[in-house]
Simulated scan of single mutants.
Amino acid sequence: MTVIVRDLRPDVRADAEGFSHVRRLALPFMLSTPESVLHDLTRSHPDAHFGQLVAEEDGEIIGTAQVGLAHDSPKPGQGSANIYVRPDRTRHGAGSLLLRAAEERLAGLGARRIHSWVLDEPHHRAFAERHGYRAGRSAHFLRLDLAQGVLPPLQDPPPGVELRTGADFAGDPRPLFALDAETASDEPGDIDTELTDYEAWLEQTWRHPLLDLGLTTVAVVDGHPAAFTAAYTDGSARYGTAMTGTARAHRGRGLAKLAKNTSLHRARAAGHTEAFTGNDTGNGPMLAINEWFGYEVCATEVRYVRELG
């Protein structure tokens, strides 16, 4: 049986379905649909040179790679290659072939450093280290049982604060872009991010097929968004938090906690039974908030890095 690596074909529905299926098996705590796979491929910024590779064995997709440049980083030459193989089809050579193809593509694009998320499990870490990668910072995946868990009671917003949904900003999302840009720049990570392109943000983030504007919740102070939690749903009973943050001028008031609690209650009322989120292990404040909600760590990833010559 021979494994081949090729580009995902956006005009072939089975490719997107196979890609999403592998991601759900390898990372069951992340939401993925064929529509989100195609969106990521076709709506990414041209400067990201984003690509999706698949490893195919006997006509079946058994592995995936997401490859691109961090075009929104102030430091040039930052590449990423995230490789995932079906848990029941490892050791068939798919991971090595995908990584080689990803590295060759990134080197050709001028990348000087490649970042790769790797599950914090012995065989995954050993794979990365065999290929010359060194471990960096880590992040937790967290899960909350919305069906059986006990959420903190809903609270009325304090005086001067109003809770709105993302749908309330459908006519003009620019204030949410400004808030997202400010909070993203403060988020801990290996690659600094500067969101400056509003039109690109509209295409990639605001129009993402997983973004649920009805469950996305925004705390507004004096008419301006001050804190928010962005909600993802995939048409099943699963709910995910894509981003939660507070403007610097309003931190320490519990507004992010207020927005996220409201979103979680709305998600449960809408029939969602599982909630997922992720946090850098160094993000103590957000980890504490999620622990307060009842989230528990369900997996950990480590960001591995390789310097190219």
Rank of each mutant, 00 (worst) to 15 (best):
R130W: 08
H131T: 02
H131I: 04
G132Q: 06
Y133H: 00
Y133Q: 02
R134V: 14
R134G: 10
R134Y: 03
A135F: 01
A135W: 02
G136P: 01
G136F: 02
G136V: 02
G136C: 04
R137Q: 11
S138Y: 00
A139H: 03
A139D: 00
H140G: 00
H140V: 09
H140D: 12
H140R: 01
H140M: 01
F141H: 14
F141I: 02
F141A: 14
L142K: 10
L142Y: 04
R143D: 14
D145N: 13
D145F: 13
L146P: 01
A147W: 05
A147D: 14
A147R: 15
A147P: 03
A147C: 05
A147E: 15
G149Q: 02
G149I: 01
V150K: 13
V150C: 03
V150H: 10
V150W: 03
L151D: 07
P152G: 00
P153D: 12
L154N: 00
Q155M: 11
Q155K: 13
Q155I: 00
Q155V: 12
D156S: 13
P157S: 08
P157L: 08
P158Q: 06
P159F: 08
P159D: 15
E162M: 05
E162L: 11
E162N: 00
L163I: 13
T165A: 14
G166K: 12
A167F: 10
D168C: 05
D168F: 07
D168V: 10
D168S: 15
F169G: 01
G171S: 13
D172N: 15
D172R: 13
D172S: 13
D172A: 12
P173M: 08
P173N: 09
P173D: 09
P173C: 10
R174K: 14
R174S: 09
L176I: 11
L176W: 04
L176E: 05
F177L: 04
F177Q: 04
